[in-house]
Design a protein around this nucleic acid. Structure first.
Lengths: 133, 133
DNA sequence: ATAATATATGAATGTATGTTCATATATTGA
DNA sequence: TCAATATATGAACATACATTCATATATTAT
């Protein structure tokens, strides 16, 4: 790994070698980065955040989710498919009704941690500039 | 809020009223959902996950980040801008060199929680089907 | 089997976004 | 001031994605 660095033109000029090597040693592999990104991507849409939020209070069937969220049944179903594929929600079938709920404790933890971040004093109203003006 | 439900055609037929009201009462508002989604969106790209991962070992200047990640300086800078706008990274300037580091403890916590999720026995290899086969 | 209901899914479309390329800004040294 | 270096940014392009519409699948009741 350190050999690679030697082949870089700027190696001896302005790279902070120690910092770079420390970083390279600790960095996750591409596969892990991709899967992690997929999980966060599943939470990167307001509609899906609202799905998660709705399910925090307990399981709901698809139709009720659509009502609660004010979305079409189709749109909700597509989003649930994505959340399912990443194991963020689970479902149980009762006749023709399918009830969805949060899958494991990580989902709620991620949600609450995100909430903590945006409510952190230093961050309030900062990212709002994007949609606020 | 309950009045609204009464105006829905399917109200008395197949909606689970209690569950819906419980959900509506607990659900975050649209603004919060949007800001939360923005934070997760900042973590929803493999390149930015790798940026975070690289910074977990300590601060790095932009050039070194580019080297570590194998990305162009411009691409890294664009991504840092996004991460900055959501207060996921902070920077300090020393002459013409800008050092970036993780902003608050939430960032590392979110990262580790995401890692836990994808490493959870039940979830290993499930979302990989998207790119694997 | 047929009708009705609950959910899922494929195709299409408009929009968002990550990277590149070119260039701007800022700092240092001569 | 001028050259060099570190970083930032605007425009363009290619790709990804959320929703809609139409339709398929599955379950229940008659």
């Amino acid at each position: 790994m350190a050999e690679n660095l030697n082949s870089l033109k700027c190696m001896d000029t302005h790279i902070h070698r120690e910092a770079v090597e420390r970083s390279l040693a600790a960095m996750v592999d591409g596969w892990t980065a991709t899967r992690l990104a997929q999980v966060f991507a599943a939470l990167s849409d307001p509609s899906r955040i609202r799905v998660i939020s709705a399910l925090l209070a307990g399981e709901l069937c698809v139709h009720d989710l659509a009502v609660v969220l004010g979305m079409s049944q189709s749109a909700v179903s597509h989003q649930l498919r994505l959340l399912r594929s990443l194991n963020l929600v689970r479902y149980r079938k009762e006749g023709r009704v399918v009830y969805y709920s949060l899958d494991d404790e990580h989902v709620e933890q991620l949600f609450r941690l995100g909430l903590e971040h945006i409510r952190h004093p230093q961050n309030i109203g900062k990212e709002s500039s994007k949609t606020d003006g």
